[in-house]
Structures are given as structure tokens and as C-alpha cells.
Simulated assay, not measured.
Amino acid sequence: MLYYVTKVAITAVLVVLIAEISKRSSFIGAVLASVPLTSVLAMLWLYIDTGDGGRVSALAGSVFWLVLPSLALFIALPLLLAKGVNFYLGLAVSIAITALCYWLMVTVLHFYGVEL
């Protein structure tokens, strides 16, 4: 149980740290947020838990394909905010667009025989 609490604490501290740094410098916050920190942590925890490089490789491959549709959020949200849409509504719409893009990507990959 202590191990899981440690994993959660490390992950949470890093996310909060990035948010706090972003208050002072949006550029440095963006650099830190753009690093695939969550993916790196997930791969690290997976390897520590299983010692299985194959599972880490499968996770990394799946993350690669799913990063592409996730970019929709970072396109839609600034455009909506620039148009004066309320932040929370813009965020909700951006998340919905991103979810649709995920679904499309998974459907297209499945059609071509790529299983995630």
C-alpha cells in the first residue's frame, strides 16, 4: 500500500509543480507540460511493477498513436478561448472534440489492423 501511495504522491507533486511553475512562466510551464511526463511515469511504474520490457514497449507504441488525436485539445481550446467562449465551456467542447478524435483514431487503426 505504501508503494501505491508513493507513486500517487510523486505523480501528484509533479503535476502541481508544473501548475505552480506555469503561474510564473507560461513558457517554462509549457515546456515541462509538453514533456511526456505522464507517459514516462506510467512506463517507469509499469517496468518497476512487471520488469517486462515488452509491456513497456506496447504501452509506448499505443501512446504514440494516441498522442496524435490528443493534439486536438491544444488546437481547439485556444481557438475557442480566442473567440470569447467561456473557459469551462471551451474546455468541455475541446475535451469532446478530443474524445471524438480518439474514437476516430482507434477506428482507423483497427481498420488497418493496428491493435492498441
Score class of each variant (00 low, 15 high):
9 A>M: 08
13 V>G: 03
64 F>S: 01
79 L>Y: 10
41 L>C: 01
46 L>M: 10
28 I>Y: 08
17 L>T: 06
62 S>E: 00
72 A>M: 12
98 T>F: 10
1 M>C: 12
75 I>S: 13
94 S>V: 04
48 I>T: 15
94 S>D: 10
51 G>D: 06
107 T>C: 12
43 M>G: 00
59 L>P: 00
63 V>H: 06
96 A>T: 11
36 P>N: 11
88 Y>Q: 14
113 G>H: 03
36 P>T: 04
11 T>W: 05
63 V>I: 05
50 T>C: 00
71 L>M: 11
74 F>P: 03
42 A>S: 14
98 T>L: 11
31 V>R: 08
112 Y>N: 12
22 S>I: 11
110 H>D: 14
48 I>N: 11
59 L>V: 07
41 L>A: 05
81 L>I: 10
76 A>M: 02
36 P>V: 01
3 Y>P: 07
14 L>R: 02
92 A>I: 03
100 L>T: 14
18 I>W: 11
87 F>W: 15
41 L>V: 01
96 A>R: 09
24 R>W: 08
48 I>W: 06
3 Y>E: 14
98 T>V: 11
10 I>S: 04
22 S>T: 13
50 T>Y: 05
19 A>I: 07
61 G>Q: 00
52 D>V: 02
101 C>F: 14
87 F>S: 14
7 K>R: 12
29 G>F: 06
88 Y>A: 15
6 T>K: 15
2 L>C: 10
49 D>F: 07
98 T>H: 10
1 M>G: 13
70 S>W: 01
13 V>I: 13
7 K>G: 01
47 Y>T: 04
9 A>I: 07
20 E>Y: 09
8 V>I: 09
39 S>G: 05
100 L>S: 06
94 S>P: 04
116 L>A: 02
65 W>V: 06
115 E>G: 06
28 I>N: 08
72 A>W: 10
103 W>F: 15
3 Y>I: 13
